[in-house]
Design a protein around this nucleic acid. Structure first.
Length: 867
RNA sequence: GCGGGUGUGGCGGAACUGGUAGACGCGCCAGACUCAAAAUCUGGUGUCCCUAGGACGUGUCGGUUCGAGUCCGACCACCCGCACCA
């Protein structure tokens, strides 16, 4: 008996697949063949791939191989999200050009991915840092520009002081830059924006159609877009001089609760509201307050703990429904300038923040919503606001209405008074896309002193990144590159300057799945018709960390591209099915002096983990997601060298459900290795007889029939496991089947036994193929299978073999299991009842009781009810 | 605070529309082979009383049902996301 040797088999089969060119996607026009687009989020070429990364690709590959076997024309491409800051950091730290660093990494990682045996169409490989990719992106940018979807605007934006660039709102987490972790500061800068807010409604409503997306991701996007319906209301100034001073008739607020207008006791403005700024110039105490608010921390706890604070601005406004009713205007630290109009009216009885504020500064609290079951005479608000529905009172013409009707009535009244209107506000802001970095896609704009921002002529594209740049001083090298920067204005010919900002790398990833549909087209980014045939991506697989970022931007892009006439995708959804996979975790290790240690630096000596180099004991830390920074990674090449690519693939798909994390353990890996060798032992010991999956049912009986049943049941379970993205249970069913094969050692001298066993082993190879393609091919060849397994159609389970002819069912007495009976399938209820009552267990349990009723569920259970 | 999710053996996890809880894997125990160990193979492995057998058992409490891990109500714990969003 020999051992299966992946080091020999795996390269052999990869060479044969490549030779046969089996992974190339067919023409999407192919008659009689449905298209299927499966895609894993493409990687950033950061260095090397570890076992943690491989899970994502393994899942996509199971789907790709399975769908191919099911007869689909599968598109399964791979590329590189190749622009980004780490390349510039490497340049700065090690003096390597970002381009070389990136291309070297791609080379290494491509070889690693190939070693995994993924059924990828490498003929479509793209890298976003190549001019033949980003020139199309520049053309798209100009289309958006033409269409009014791009604009330049001076705004108070997020500045990451470590990465030395601005960031989009989506890229600021807890007040820190998503990549650097530095605390973000606000700066007023002229920046480029994409008008994603134009699509707020479409992006929100579209979420309801994405049935094959995780609910969690949809909810996150819904919250991020944050649509609120309500009203904008103008509170006119009391003093005519205020109208002069502030240049408006009054103060505009946004509210979702115009029904509580009669509970208004103050207006509150954001500390950086224009009116507050104007007043701050005159009044030092107001300026001091605004300054205090700016300095307050931005982290969760700080915001939560920060008490409500405000300052009376000394300005008064009139109530929109009562000219005589004057309301004081305050500045308050809890009002956000970035939401709504940066101003609110405080209705303390119905809003906790307003109530806290009113109590602190002794402002009136008038309840206007009466909860059901409360009496208006003794209902009071203490320290808890009532935010629910109820009946409006203390509110003149709104009295007696329910919350919903009162909102409508109040809004109508505001509209008739021309002091307000129904309005919708979003939390979503336009996407800030300019970055003050070198290693990104140049923005194809020229700034002319006379003509302003002028698009680069399309024939001049790409605006290529200059290669001769230096990173020895901070800032953007493009900014210092005079010969690159200096150009003539395309419109008037006067001396002008190129835009030196580059595009956010999330722009690159917003359309790469379209480029994959026709990467050979140099003249256009993609063919509208071909792209529409492949899109939407049928199955997208990636990490949940992109729930808002990439997945929202891409949904915007497909909509914008449709509106620009570049693609025909009416509903605008790029990804029909989304799966967010769990991570691979691993224990962490720290040396006595606090250094993180690689698993390969650690070994077990007498039950204790020690650092190999020093022999010192190792502190075992928590189990965390594999990451370079914690060093709890297992390098893919090391693993493949030891156990083979099939073993990694099998391991990361076993045990845990795909959406949950899976822990890497040496024990688990040993189990995989054992399993592979057991499979191989079965294959090797087979006397050799070509598989015949078309064996008629009636040909065999006895144990051979049992084996056939096990095989077809496994096939059925594995198929439905793959279809339902339950790879762990599919793996378990294969295990089960292998156990059955090992147990049912049929005498293969009998032809019917040999036939049944050949069939079973053939089916085993086919079932294994999506998971462990190399081993499966080797097995298929060994047992004399015809052709290459990768080209074979997925077998259909024989329905007749899925039904048992007898079934064991439980016998319960009063709901407790007492015995079991074996019955023919389809046996009569009376037969079941009689048999159940006669069982030893039932008789014992029924002693001294009278049978009242017998419930028979055919094929499932018999329950005897007795007292 | 709001939203989403998860609670099942020593561990990861199975269980289709309510019908034999614990599939499969890891670990552990025993045995075989071996001078021995590793590897491999065989058997066992929810807890308790341990005798055929029985009692208990899916986060807690209650309900519906002949029957509940699954359905309903109330809670508890943990994880993730958002967060002064008017």
């Amino acid at each position: 008996m020999t051992r299966y040797n992946p080091r020999e088999s795996e390269p052999k089969w990869r060479a044969r697949w490549a030779e046969a060119d089996i992974d190339r996607a067919g023409d999407p026009d192919t008659p009689g063949q449905d298209n299927y687009y499966v895609l894993e989020m493409f990687p950033y070429p950061s260095g090397r791939i570890h076992v943690g990364h491989s899970r994502n690709y393994a899942m996509g590959d199971v789907v790709a191989r399975y769908k191919r076997a099911k007869g689909y024309n599968v598109l399964h491409p791979m590329g590189w999200d190749a622009f980004g800051l780490p390349a510039e950091n490497a340049a700065r730290e090690r003096g390597i050009h970002p381009r070389n660093w990136t291309l070297d990494n791609i080379k290494v990682m491509r070889a690693q991915l190939k070693r995994l045996g993924l059924a990828l169409d490498w003929s479509r490989e793209i890298a976003t840092c190549e001019p033949d990719y980003y020139k199309h992106q520049q053309a798209i940018f100009l289309k958006f520009f033409e269409k009014g979807l791009v604009y330049r605007h001076k705004a108070n934006v997020n500045w990451d002081p470590v990465d030395q660039t601005v960031l989009a709102n989506e890229q600021v987490v807890d007040g820190r830059g998503w990549r650097s972790g530095a605390i973000v500061v606000k700066r007023d800068l002229d920046q480029w924006f994409f008008k994603i807010t134009d699509y707020a409604d479409s992006l929100l409503d579209g979420l309801d159609t994405l049935e094959r997306w995780p609910e969690k991701v949809r909810v996150m996007q819904r919250n991020w877009i944050g649509r609120s319906r309500g009203a904008r209301i103008i509170f006119p100034f009391v003093e005519p001089e205020d109208v002069q001073r502030f240049g408006t008739e009054g103060i505009e607020v946004f509210t979702t609760r115009p029904d509580t207008l009669f509970g208004a006791s103050f207006l509150a403005l954001a500390p950086d509201h224009d009116i507050v700024r104007t007043l701050g110039d005159e009044d030092p105490s107001i300026d001091a307050f605004a300054d205090y608010c700016r300095r307050t921390g931005k982290t969760q706890e700080e915001i939560e703990k920060a008490p409500k604070r405000g300052v009376d601005l000394g300005v008064k406004v009139r109530h929109p429904f009562d000219k005589e009713w004057e309301i004081p205007v305050w500045a308050a630290n809890f009002v956000l300038s970035t939401y709504g109009t940066g101003a609110i009216f405080g209705s303390p009885a119905g809003d906790q923040r307003d109530l806290d504020f009113a109590r602190k500064y002794d402002l009136p609290v008038t309840p206007v919503v009466l909860p059901d079951g409360e009496s208006p005479d003794n209902y009071q608000i203490d320290d808890t606001a009532y935010t629910g529905d109820g009946t409006i009172y203390n509110s003149r013409f709104l009295d007696g209405l329910n919350t919903h009707d009162a909102i409508e009535a109040a809004t109508e009244k505001l509209e008739s008074l021309k002091l307000g209107e129904g309005a919708t506000t979003y939390r979503l802001r336009d996407w800030l896309v300019s970055r003050q970095r070198y290693w990104g896609c140049p923005i194809p704009i020229i700034h002319c002193p006379d003509c302003g921002a002028v698009p680069v002529r399309e024939t001049e594209l790409p605006v290529a990144l200059p290669e001769d740049v230096s990173f020895d001083e901070p800032g953007n090298p493009l900014d210092r590159h005079d010969s690159w920067k200096s150009v003539d204005c395309p419109k008037c010919g006067t001396a002008a300057k190129r835009e030196t900002d580059t595009l956010d790398t999330f722009v690159c990833s917003s359309w790469y799945f379209l480029r994959f549909t026709a990467p050979w087209r140099e003249d256009i980014p993609f063919e509208a018709d071909t792209a529409a045939q492949w899109l939407p991506v049928d199955q997208y697989v990636g990490g949940v960390e992109h729930a808002i970022l990439h997945l929202l931007y891409a949904r915007f892009f497909t909509r914008a591209l449709h509106d620009c006439g570049l693609i025909n995708l009416p509903d605008g959804e790029p990804f029909a099915g989304l799966f967010t996979q769990g991570m691979v975790t691993h224990e962490t290790y720290k040396s006595t002096d606090g250094r993180w240690l690689l698993p390969t630096d650690v070994e077990n000596r007498a039950g204790q983990k020690v650092e190999i180099a020093t022999g010192n004991p190792v502190e075992t830390g928590p189990i965390e997601k594999m990451s370079k920074s914690r060093k709890n990674v297992v390098d893919l090449d090391d693993f493949i060298e030891d156990f083979g690519a099939d073993a990694v693939r099998w391991f990361v798909l076993s045990d845990s459900p795909p959406e949950r994390d899976v822990e890497y353990t040496d024990g688990g890996v040993d189990g995989v290795w054992r399993f592979i060798q057991r499979v191989w032992a079965l294959i090797e010991n087979h006397p050799g007889h070509a598989p015949r999956p078309d064996l008629p049912v009636g040909d065999v009986g006895g144990e051979a029939l049992d084996l056939r049943r096990a095989a077809h049941r496994a096939l059925n379970d594995v198929s439905s496991g793959i279809e339902g993205f339950r790879f762990n249970t599919a793996v378990a069913h294969i295990h089960d089947f292998v156990n059955a094969l090992r147990k049912l050692a049929l005498d293969t001298n009998k032809p019917e036994n040999l036939a049944a066993r050949s069939e079973a082993l053939g089916l085993l190879a086919q079932m294994l193929a999506p998971f462990m393609p190399h081993l499966a091919e080797e097995a298929w060849e060994q047992i004399g299978g015809e052709g290459m397994l990768a080209k074979r159609a997925w077998p259909e389970a024989n329905k007749a073999l899925l039904v048992e002819n007898s079934v064991t069912i439980a016998v319960q007495v009063n709901g407790k299991r007492r015995d079991e009976i074996n019955l023919a399938v389809g046996a009569d209820k009376d037969v079941a009842e009689t048999a159940a009552l006669a069982t030893e267990g039932a008789v014992r349990a029924l002693e001294g009781l009278t049978v009242r009723k017998v419930i028979v569920v055919p094929g499932r259970i018999v329950n005897i009810v007795a007292t």
